[in-house]
Design a protein around this nucleic acid. Structure first.
Lengths: 177, 177
DNA sequence: GTCTATAGGTGGATAGAC
DNA sequence: GTCTATCCACCTATAGAC
């Protein structure tokens, strides 16, 4: 049996990825878990605290995921392919990137959360840059920025069009060059 | 003196680009204009009607803008540069793309608005593909998709980091090849 | 930890007067 | 066209009992 705090995080993560931070409420969480909203406040005093916990949790999870890819996959191009496949699943599930969503709704979160989002994307870009550098690119940082941008943008378009393959299509060129 | 309906559209456009569709209310519009919320409902019966009008208006405006660039700018690469400069101004103003924002908040709008968003991006991609084709690319449609994705994603990152130049940086490679 | 109860605010939307 | 008045639903958050 999963504990309540984890349940809250799991459901909130899914709801933000599908509906956005301003598109769900504590009542949605409470109803799905079968508790009352007051109990959610016991774990996360404010909605912004919940947002911060979610960004930190997904930052950690993705960092571990990237680390695993680094260890298990031989070539930099194949590592990038693995990342694409992972995020394409978001689109297939009707989800957007959690941090991308919050970056869109930036004005609705505190500067603390905004700072956590910045850290998430900075680490993501650094990992990507390492792949491009290992592949022999001279402008690894810029390529990493382009890849990251195209990933976020293609997730938006893929969900809008109901076609997850768009993510792979938009990022294809980065794995060939 | 601008008429009320145009004022509503102008202010709503800015608020959606900065705060998102779920991040502003009829009271925000009414306060800025100096009227009451009931008067907003006279022009736009529901918030979704307002959303639809905004997507259609910006679709038309951007189509005309692209048409002007097509007529006034000689090379396809320079035309893409002009588009980048236009959207980079959004980031400089702390704004995201209106249609990108609504694509993120997709679950909060009707299927009618969702359909209008699809049309907007389809036309955008078609115009971009024409530029890549004119520049001699064999995979113009795919390049257009990559460009569009990177544009949307870089707008998110540029605003988050408070650095508009990121848009130009992320799209640089498309204007060089 | 979870509950009841409630505060206190904001949301979109409508009816009908002017 | 714009207003007043109002509805009713929803939201985040808190106090205090169990």
């Amino acid at each position: 049996m999963t504990d309540t705090k984890t349940k809250i995080l799991d459901i909130a993560e899914r709801l933000i990825q599908t509906r956005g931070f301003n598109g769900f409420s504590y009542i949605d969480l409470a109803n799905e878990i079968g508790i009352k909203t007051a109990s959610i406040h016991y774990y996360f005093k404010t909605k912004d605290d919940l947002a911060a916990a979610l960004v930190e949790r997904i930052h950690k999870a993705h960092a571990e995921g990237f680390s695993n890819i680094q260890a298990s996959t031989s070539s930099p191009r194949k590592r990038l392919q693995a990342v694409i496949a992972f995020f394409q699943q978001y689109a297939a599930d009707g989800k957007f990137c959690l941090c991308g969503m919050m970056a869109a709704e930036l004005r609705s979160v505190s500067s603390h959360v905004s700072s956590l989002l910045n850290k998430y994307f900075k680490d993501f870009q650094t990992w990507l840059a390492r792949q491009f550098k290992d592949a022999g690119a001279s402008d690894a940082q810029r390529q990493a920025l382009s890849f990251l941008s195209a990933l976020e943008g293609s997730l938006l378009l893929a969900r809008l069009r109901g076609d997850p393959k768009i993510v792979h299509e938009a990022l294809k060129s980065f794995c060939k060059a």
